[in-house]
């Protein structure tokens, strides 16, 4: 190496070191910041009671928002995974036309690229207004489901595509149908990985705000009794508490609870993947 190149090498090393340190600091800072500020407002009462005070949210807790968010996640996962598993199974096991496969991939990719606020707009006109579902748990849940559909589809398709071809052939060679092969062999075999993907996607759904602003989230609602009730959700609650300047202290608490729930979901998903690998 000549002198110039030595300097370039030096700059290169500084650059990559700086990058890595920046990324790590940002991660630590965000988690640290929310933890330090939020920990003092989170207690049993905060988690298990209704929001109170005037304006509402200045006192009390976030229980309906926690439950609302979990419900939203469940509905979104149910809706999205049904469609996503079907699409993935179709493309991997039934579609024998490369062109159609390519088109499916392009469409899924485009759907993944649609911003969540536009999905919110779509949910608002189609579900809330045209289908008269109103601003409700169901409307918001389905909208979130549409949002996570591409995420789940891509990953489940990958799992199925990488499934052991010899095993699938052995099953066909026994004269066993695709249906039976799928439900009795392939899906049970990879269920941990599949559930892991769905769980992770559920986490995304739970954290999303934009799709539910117009389709179902409200400032205050009790724990939802039916699919048609409007709901509170953690991310929306956090946005309102901050945006409207209602209570910074409660906002920190809400942010911490939201992050902790998502962290648990993430860890759960990782554990599922790891035990899935050991299982196979």
């Amino acid at each position: 190496m000549d002198m110039d190149d030595r300097i370039r090498d030096y700059i290169f090393k500084i650059w990559i070191a700086f990058s890595a340190i920046t990324v790590i600091s940002v991660i630590v800072y965000i988690f640290g910041y929310i933890f330090v500020h939020g920990i003092s407002s989170v207690d049993m009462e905060f988690i298990f009671s209704q929001p109170k005070g005037m304006p509402i949210g200045t006192e009390g807790g976030i229980f309906p928002a926690i439950v609302g968010s979990i419900y939203l996640m469940l509905i979104a996962c149910l809706f999205a995974s049904t469609l996503a598993i079907a699409t993935a199974v179709y493309t991997v096991f039934y579609c024998d036309n490369k062109r159609i496969e390519g088109i499916i991939h392009l469409i899924v990719k485009c759907m993944a690229g649609i911003p969540s606020i536009v999905l919110g707009l779509f949910g608002y006109t189609l579900l809330v207004l045209n289908l008269r579902l109103g601003r409700s748990l169901l409307s918001a849940g389905i909208t979130l489901g549409i949002m996570i559909y591409p995420y789940i589809e891509v990953r489940i398709e990958k799992i199925l595509r990488e499934a052991d071809k010899d095993i699938i052939d052995s099953s066909y060679a026994l004269g066993v149908s695709k249906f039976h092969t799928l439900f009795k062999l392939i899906l049970p075999l990879y269920k941990r990985d599949i559930i892991s993907v769905i769980t992770l996607a559920g986490g995304f759904a739970m954290g999303a705000t934009a799709p539910i602003i117009l389709t179902g989230a409200v400032l205050f609602a009790p724990v939802p009794k039916s699919l048609s009730s409007p709901i509170m959700a953690l991310p929306f609650h956090l946005y309102i508490l901050t945006g409207e300047g209602i209570s910074l202290e409660k906002a920190y608490g809400t942010a911490l609870v939201l992050i902790l729930i998502l962290l648990i979901i993430n860890i759960l998903s990782i554990v599922l993947t790891i035990t899935g690998k050991e299982h196979n």
Partner: peptide, 22 residues
Amino acid sequence: RSVVDILAGIPSVIYGFVGLLV
């Protein structure tokens, strides 16, 4: 890599929240 994945999973409203306050 898992930590980076978790970073991708932080809801945008949290980023907005920290961005606004910090």
